[in-house]
Amino acid sequence: MEFVFTEEQAMIAETVKGFFAEHATSERTRKAMAADGIDRDLWSAFCAELGLAGIGIAEDLGGAGLGMVELAIVAEAAGSQVAALPLLGQAMAAQAIASGGSAAQQGEWLGKLVSGEAIAVYASADALDLADGKLSGSVSFVMHGGVADLFVLGSGDSAWLVRADAAGVSVTTHTTMDQTRPMATVTLAGVAGDALADGAAALAAARQAGWVIAAAEGLGVAQASLERTVAYAKERVQFGRPIGSFQAYKHRLADMVIEIEQARSAVYWAACAVDEQSDEAAIALHSAKSFAADTAFMCAGNMIQLHGGIGFTWEHDAHLYFKRARALQSMLGAGDWHREQVATMILGAAA
């Protein structure tokens, strides 16, 4: 597949890269980490001013009418700055409602999500029990669960909308490694959920969006790790010469470049395959999520080591990238699980 951004996509990439570079600063991200994990001013500008929260939603539903490629472009730019936004969970929730919600459910929620008026997050909730139309059980690892207004919970082939302020809902927040994406446990005790009209379609759309965004964020983390390390290699001098001139150092940087270029191909192959409803979409998604997340972890780890002592300090941003990369590896299916899906698709029963 030969893939090149269209003129419009290139313009979006330039716009979002500049937006996050200017506004998702280290100072603002650290301030958000000390609060609830969201840079509220950044989120407001992201949604209301640029309209980026609706980039993967159809125009007749209030979105921008663009696809997964454009969403990946935005996610890559956000990942490159480790932006403190509820982008991943919100996009998964919005895609679920757009694909599987009734007209009433779409009308009630999508406008609020696109504008930033409300925050919704998606979570897999296979341990939920349904009795007499009421949901009970505990849902772990809910992204930004402590600040969400709406939970989209998927279980089996069904999905429900659950308001955070509904009777019987309790939320326990946790301190997690990636403080830009805090997790929570949501407990339901006889809660009246609003079942989505087509649960299977909702879950499929949420997972596709989640894997594309997580992979694209990983690509952004990896690219930024490389660029920051290259800049440091030109500035830091040892034995009278820049450390980037030493062969061993250059080899590590070259390894990062190779992995990043492969990850970039995987990410945009997956996004394009989803947009084109290609038969390759499933294998592309699993490949992109596993490869890009592993690449992010490798590059972020190298960033710390190649910065020497300063890279291990709290004052340096390298740890922000490392924590985001490690979190991406484990969420929405670990790399081993995704690779098993790829093996099964290729080898069938032999896998």
Rank of each mutant, 00 (worst) to 15 (best):
T313E: 12
F291C: 03
L153S: 00
A184H: 05
A58H: 02
L188E: 07
A343L: 13
V69F: 10
T313R: 13
K250P: 02
E14R: 13
S278H: 00
D126A: 14
W160L: 07
A84P: 13
D336K: 13
S138M: 11
G37T: 09
I55G: 03
G240F: 02
T229G: 01
G67R: 15
M256T: 09
A78G: 03
E117D: 15
G309N: 03
D132L: 03
L161Y: 03
S170E: 14
Y321K: 10
S115D: 10
A204W: 01
L153K: 03
A75C: 04
G101W: 08
V121G: 04
A216I: 11
L226I: 14
A284C: 07
A75K: 08
R28H: 12
A94H: 01
A72I: 09
A206N: 13
L320G: 07
A318M: 12
M11T: 13
A343S: 13
T173N: 06
G301K: 10
P86E: 01
G111Q: 01
A64Y: 07
R163K: 14
T180F: 11
W211Y: 07
T176Y: 00
R236Q: 10
F246Y: 15
A77I: 08
Y321H: 14
A293M: 05
M177D: 04
K112S: 03
E235Q: 11
T29A: 08
D60Y: 11
F3W: 12
E27R: 10
F322D: 12
A343K: 15
W314A: 10
R324N: 01
A350Y: 14
I97M: 06
Q277D: 06
A104Q: 14
A125K: 00
A184K: 05
M177A: 07
E340L: 15
